[in-house]
Design a protein around this nucleic acid. Structure first.
Lengths: 138, 138
DNA sequence: TAAAACGTTGGAGTGCACTCGAAGCAAGTA
DNA sequence: TACTTGCTTCGAGTGCACTCCAACGTTTTA
């Protein structure tokens, strides 16, 4: 296992770039998944070394963190790819991007409400089990 | 809501039983999925007509509603099957069932927290898009 | 009674999001 | 120099949760 923070004399405190395995360790995604993300267009352009190896930047890490959040919402990968495309297309897609994010926001709110309803049902069920008053809760 | 059986199954207010397509319409699940649920052991025993067609009861509908809630939590089907098995096994599994439900409850709470974090990130992003102060949010 | 609609089964297929394998190139270590 | 590790690509495989098919039996409707 290689040392992650090899201090490159040409750069200051912040790492200039990360190998794929470093990013895998940092994000919890597998190297396979990172390559797959790039292949399907879910990553912005990733730099390469002179020998063709990926060199992820801090910016890429930020993007991956954001993608991770989107993933938590249950957003399909295809929609994330769509968002990534819009980012690549430049400034004139700002409105569409904001709309996409706002739709996602509404979905997340709805999901939270749904989960809170479920929580209420679970509490009732658990309550039934707690009070040992006969019967067989199902 | 405790009236269970009426004298005339065809005309009563509370239905004594439902066909698979009626249950599909009521639950939003497909008939295919209902049969699959039964096959994998996710349904308690479902009655059959004298010719072998399924006759779902109110009790089955209640169970399906609960399963629907569990599904919303993201609980794997295998775990739901486990719970169904415990119910079938009878009263001595009460404790295990309560534990399973309590674990699920904790998972749901964690999920809600996760989504609220994501919501915060989305709000920040959307805020960036809202204030047209240059730059290209990614 | 005839046709349409609905039911049954086992098994195969689908879509998603990874996940892994094989073959080969490149860089660092003993 | 040989070994080890890590990286590359393409393509195939995995696990989950359905989803559908074919062939045939049953029930309802006109």
């Amino acid at each position: 296992m290689s040392v992650i923070a090899s201090t490159d004399p040409r750069t200051s405190g912040t790492r200039a770039h990360y190998t794929i395995s470093e990013v895998a360790a940092l994000t919890g995604l597998s190297a396979h998944t990172l390559r797959w993300y790039e292949r399907i267009g879910l990553m912005p352009h990733v730099d390469r070394s002179h020998t063709g190896q990926r060199r992820f930047t801090e910016r890429d890490l930020g993007w991956l963190a954001f993608v991770g959040k989107l993933r938590l919402t249950g957003m399909p990968v295809a929609d994330m790819v769509r968002y990534a495309e819009l980012v690549r297309e430049g400034d004139h897609t700002r409105d569409e991007r904001r709309e996409l994010l706002e739709t996602t926001r509404r979905d997340v709110l709805a999901r939270i409400t749904e989960l809170q309803d479920t929580l209420a049902v679970l509490d009732i069920k658990i309550g039934h089990y707690g009070t040992a008053c006969g019967g067989t809760p199902s």
